[in-house]
Design a protein around this nucleic acid. Structure first.
Lengths: 348, 348
DNA sequence: TTGAAAGCGCTAACAT
DNA sequence: ATGTTAGCGCTTTCAA
């Protein structure tokens, strides 16, 4: 690795002070009344020697790294990948760079990652947490670490947050199914269920069903583990099928679940939507490409990212004051497509 | 932000030197003959004061940040999202953290990002480049910046790289189509075509067709811009359809293209595979869930990531020696599914 | 078995 | 209009 040119190098080779050079590098030359002439000399030397400021040293000195951390359960999940991309864009626009960490829903790993990023002095954190309580994050606001919680939030939390109205979204799904006269309805969720998004979707859906006099029998309240969806779901559906006890409709609580469910139904040769109507929470592009296209509750991914980044910037601004709680809840949409439509639409 | 405890704090509060504390923090106490007793005292104080080493300062001092940069065209693309996840895992296992940058195929942005990451002193770079020549990267090996090129590579490059056999993969696709007696075959590619993966796929496919006496007429060599696939492809297919000049089969050069093509065909009410057989380069989970399921050339994503990270670690090891060129080319697989099968398979 | 001091590259208060 | 100096928090000779 060729020795890097430093401020001192260009200063000494010019017979001026490091201060001077630093000033012009940071475009503070004029403000400090450094002569145009000297500035030009310095700039030329900088170009000649191909000087590049050591951002690490600068960050160290200024206590600011222009880096933010993004913590999610799995960056390869469509939803988070999109979020990541949007946040990366906003970050880049503001001169920040983003470090990504996937937790695999493991609370300890998540904490470890956050601690590491803090030790690395990232300026802020955007987190979709797998934790069960807000304690860890309340402590973060206590110590003044800028951060915002996204997607998954907590009651009693002190952190700024942005999420969507999961409860309303799930109700939308239930209403859509009910409006078509469907009564035998199943719910497929992942465990752990304590995740706020999941529990609110469950509540919204079951409440809406209950309000319409329908209850969700245990055998149609299907829980599959986060890391083994396909095998478990397949097994459950198969046994329901064999018992001749399949529902008429299924609501899946996230996009992975929706995909996996589609696949399982296919393998069981269950036709969607003819035999079973399907609707999922969380929309992905692909759902409009498939046959049948898939009905889904769509989250405003870009607005989530935008708001999250904005809340972070806000905290960077007022350095000393503790981050003020602001819990933004965004509305969701239902994208009605073929998979949930009974009777089946006819094509020309 | 509560004042952070530093090495000096715990040293002075114990009446010992920073050296001592540093040594025990880094588990070099025994090696340097520091008494068990003192070590214990230090460790207790560390716990009491909740001391956390400032990794930024440490990185600055040691010239090592334990951070690597991952540069791809778009982190929200399935393929790169998976790559990112795998690399993140390997990185985490080895104590590294990863910064992600999406270039949107913009060469200048890519260069800027790489320069910024270098100024931030990342230890290494893994790059799927959008550049047209290897010059920039050859220079990187010259200055001893550890990096590895993935996915897209260059002739005459001096950088370590890992890619897949795009040429062979495309031939596989052609052979599959030809083996079914299909003759009227179209190719859908993105522009810019200079990207190595793309050009090799084009070559492999057209060469295989040519070897079988089939040529690709210009109107079936469909080029759509990276950032406007759907509109353009739709327009082209529509006009072919109106001219009654649709092919019998289509080969799409990446997963986005495949999805988009599927959608366009649907909107044209063209049945896949009955009217047109479809096969795409690059497999994504979803392709096995759809109706029809989609035939694709599958890349060994995990092996790409693993090898890439390994090549990077290798460069970290032998610090002084220039990175030795190693261009790993991995084999691809064809996943034959319904979309490419003629006659259409029958289901029970 | 332990400590003093230098220094990584930069910025900023304080001279001059 | 420009320079001196101290110091961010850590590791690492070199001494004692």
């Amino acid at each position: 690795m060729a020795k890097k040119i430093s401020l001192a190098d260009i200063a000494s080779s010019l017979g001026v002070s490091k201060t001077l050079v630093s000033l012009v590098v940071n475009n503070k030359g004029d403000a400090h009344g450094i002569s145009k002439e000297t500035q030009k000399k310095v700039r030329e030397k900088i170009r000649e020697l191909k000087y590049q400021p050591n951002e690490l040293a600068r960050g160290f000195r200024m206590g600011k790294t222009n880096t933010i951390g993004l913590i999610v359960s799995d960056i390869s999940n469509r939803f988070y990948a999109k979020i990541a991309r949007n946040i990366e864009d906003y970050a880049w626009q503001h001169g920040y760079t983003v470090i990504i960490c996937s937790t695999d829903e493991q609370v300890e790993k998540e904490k470890e990652q956050i601690r590491l990023l803090m030790d690395r002095k990232v300026d802020g954190l955007i987190i979709s947490s797998s934790q069960e309580s807000p304690d860890f994050f309340n402590n973060l606001v206590e110590v003044g670490m800028p951060h915002v919680l996204i997607d998954r939030t907590f009651d009693q939390m002190k952190s700024p947050a942005v999420s969507v109205d999961n409860y309303a979204g799930a109700r939308l799904a239930a209403q859509h199914l009910l409006s078509q006269g469907l009564q035998k309805i199943a719910l497929v969720t992942i465990t752990p269920e304590h995740i706020s998004t999941i529990s609110r979707r469950i509540d919204g859906f079951t409440h809406e069903l209950a309000a319409n006099g329908i209850n969700l029998p245990p055998e149609w309240f299907i829980k599959v583990p986060f890391d083994n969806m396909e095998a478990v779901l397949s097994e459950r559906l198969t046994s329901l099928s064999e018992a001749n006890n399949l529902p008429e409709a299924i609501f899946t609580l996230n996009n992975n679940l929706t995909s996996v469910c589609l696949k399982c139904l296919r393998e069981l040769s269950v036709s969607v939507p003819r035999q079973i109507a399907l609707i999922g929470f969380d929309d992905v592009t692909f759902f409009s490409f498939t046959q049948p296209s898939v009905t889904a509750i769509a989250q405003p991914i870009d607005r989530i990212s935008e708001k999250a980044f904005e809340l972070l910037l806000q905290q960077f601004g007022k350095s000393q004051t503790a981050a003020k709680l602001q819990n933004t809840v965004l509305a969701v949409d239902i994208k009605i497509r073929e998979s949930s439509l009974k009777p089946i639409p006819t094509y020309t």
